[in-house]
Amino acid sequence: MQSELLYKRLAQKLVDAELNREVVVKLTAEYPELTVEDGYRIQNELVSLKLEQGHRIFASKMGLTSQAKMKQMNVHEPIRGYIFDYMNIEDGILPINELIHPKVEAEIAFVLHEDLEGPGITEAHVLAATDYVVPALEIIDSRYVQFQFALPDVIADNTSSSRVFIGSTWRKPNELEIDLVGVTLSINGELKDLGAGAAVLGHPARSVAMLANMLAREGRKLHKGDLILSGGITGSHQLREGDVVSAKWGGLGSIEFVVKTR
């Protein structure tokens, strides 16, 4: 456990890195003793700083939800973070000049019509509490040099949250087999990646259930109206100026955007 002051200082460092587009060395290089819990304490400070700056929480997100990524990071539980209102893009343009080294991944997001309070929340509770499922493309952009980080680092860095595109095809959860929604991700017309909903912890609703249960440990819960990005169905793919990105979801429409300087 570190001091309150250190959490604040490290959070400020990450906020500045995002704002100035200047990568920083992972925190655990200087503070190897940082734990996952410390990571969340720093993330909390980061959220407070953003809210003080007048930003609003737009969505929650889960990260490291695939077996491959969990194995790579040697973890057994996904990680959680936030997406702020300024991160939500509605004009189909990803402003590369505001970002560091963005990557894109395709996801399914949930909109809740009831609160979800853990512990003990299951996939079935999530489906019952879900108003709509919607397609989402998440842009991650680590504030660390070359996406090099340990688990406490990426948690502190708000799980690399950067931007998000939400699709316009919304479906009731019972209209789809959510784990069998197929997804294709193409960049400049070339199929880059594909998968199905089950790539997210076996079922995207399981990811939302885990989030509710993780929040319960801090006496918090998911609220009616919350938007939750459940985790990458595809891997994450590096973006460059001029790229045209197109993703399609079975029964959930498509999202397209271009990467350019604004």
Partner: peptide
């Protein structure tokens, strides 16, 4: 866009 999940001994091994 038909999604596929493949399981081996009840464990998810691939999606497509």
């Amino acid at each position: 866009l038909v999604g596929m999940a493949l399981y081996k001994n009840q464990q998810l091994v691939n999606t497509g």
